[in-house]
Design a protein around this nucleic acid. Structure first.
Lengths: 193, 193, 193, 193
DNA sequence: CATGAATGAGTGTTCATTCAT
DNA sequence: TATGAATGAACACTCATTCAT
């Protein structure tokens, strides 16, 4: 009856290897054999933990989305004022994107390339931003935030951070504390009434 | 005395096929054989026009960047005021991204994924935005535009359009003329002093 | 004082699963993992009961051969007349092939495909028909049965039943009681002097 | 415009290699890599001539069925008497099965194992026996052949040859000219009225 | 210039079997 | 005894690229 049990270590090692290889070589040069080798297991072992390559990517995406969202809403509470709440979330996200560069970069690829994660996982991943959407809606009801589509709000406040992350990763640009405050001001000015 | 010469038609057909397949199937499912078939030529023929697959992607990137920049600076002249010049360019870019969705989407993929075009082509592609950088520099000298890194200026004015394009392509969101004006106001407010 | 001992139930379950899968999916799509799952045990458990896959097939073959031969010689006694003895055996075999279709089909595959069971098991399996060969020899001595090779006798009396079984399994043909009597007459006419 | 053309030699070499390997190693140990090596081509080349492994087997089956049927009806004409026509066909088939042992053995495997060729090809292959079925029908109308199902006629006249072929291939038995005449007599006696 | 055949190296995945418990 | 995890070797098949014409 006794038996070896699935080791979470191996699962994590596989996810980490995948993240690393997709980020640095691209999806098209991250073969299962390399992933296995990097994780220190046999190629066949991957299929104990994941159904197939797509499933591996999907799970990696969803778990990183979840950990991103945890970071994004750290210390957030609905009783914060709209501005304070937004600033907290914005800074959390900025902090994540500029420090957890690898994870953020992976998520950015997945979100930008239609063919990387399947539609179901993408929809699932979207749910993670709900509290921010709720905050914006509240801000609009309170007359604090412009009454425009959340897509526009996102495009002008959160999405720019993805660009800064990419530049940071390429060492083209470094975001200082001052820059960050300027950037937040820009973001806030854009959406506040 | 007609001589047989490389037919530009075939070259164009190959570039178009590549754009289409990379956009719709992803880089990892855009094999040379499919590209050839779609362009109506033999796989071997690709190698008459392009050195290899990377070269094909690089050239496609550079030509689209060039045509993007042509669109971006249409009707622009250095004697325009900073605000008018910026608005012209911004609207040109917005127009391009929301109408030439396929081309814009391809460029966006290349710019976001480190491994798609090689570094040399990327650097080459960057030059296309020079007139905008020049305009910003002039605006800063004239005390009209905030004295912050052009990366930030780009992140908060141009880059958001990439997000709107992606949403538009996914039919999640449609940008109206009103939206566009709001979006421009946001962009301008962000960077003007 | 119950001691843990190899459970015959599991052994039987494994043999049944193998029979089913080889018959319905073919040898090449009857992997140990499926066999195990169908038998409700772990793949590793198979190796407690059988040395390897070949051994599993061999044992399945031999046990089915034995049960086939038991059926073939049911109620047979050497004091029966040659004709009566032959008719009894022939009808027993026909009954087996047309009712125990799965078992018969498996045996037929093994006997037709050189590479399914190994030579040793095949030789072992042949012994099961000995009483029929003895009967034929007696018939020849008594001048009742043609003095031709038992291979020919078998080919023209017993072997045709395999074809009828295959057709029956494919629903191309159904053998009635009348057919059966005609078929036996054919068989007997073929070999009687 | 010029190009290398598909060489029929390679196609034939591939079919031959497949026949040999399936016969001697079994379907489950006739991998594409071995087939390619034996045919003296790269594994990838197989896919120029055949869609996939199933297609390769199907085509091999159909071509052998066709050449079998050509042999079976050599010199046959509808104006022959029923008995003479049947003897001609029977001897042709016997000759084929006992001399073209490899081909006959392959066909026998395909016909016995449900999972080897797909249903469509099997149905296609069946058509090859039509002239024999026609002859039997004529014989029944003329009151020369027993009025029983053609499945029974086949089972008792043609099918036994498959057994003799198998035994011959295994060197368990050799069919002489005398044997053959005896065997034909058995076959004819079985079905004639 | 242009081609379809040809290929070695590689792809994602499965398999019979063994390991550690 | 019995297990599920683990695996090296193999599988069918595809790819970017080159060859021969």
């Amino acid at each position: 009856m006794a038996k070896r049990t699935k080791s979470n270590e191996k699962r994590i090692a596989l996810l980490n290897a995948t993240l690393y290889l997709v980020n640095n070589n691209g999806f098209h040069d991250a073969p299962m054999s390399k992933i296995a080798k990097m994780a220190g297991v046999s190629p066949a072992t991957i299929y104990i933990y994941f159904e197939n390559k797509q499933d591996l990517i999907n799970q990696l995406y969803l778990e990183n989305k979840a950990s991103f969202s945890e970071a994004a809403f750290k210390d957030y509470a609905v009783n914060l004022s709209v501005k304070n709440g937004f600033e907290l979330i914005w800074r959390n996200i900025a902090h994540y994107k500029l420090n957890q560069i690898e994870e953020a970069n992976f998520l950015s690829q997945c979100d930008n390339i239609a063919t990387m994660v399947d539609e179901e996982s993408r929809q699932e991943g979207l749910k993670n931003l709900q509290p921010l959407l709720d905050l914006w809606e509240r801000g609009q009801k309170e007359g604090i935030i412009k009454n425009i589509s959340p897509y526009l709000l996102y495009a002008y406040t959160i999405y720019p951070l993805a660009f800064l992350m990419t530049m940071q990763k390429r060492n083209d640009f470094e975001l200082t504390e001052t820059n960050l405050s300027e950037a937040f001001d820009s973001a806030w000015n854009t959406i506040k009434i």
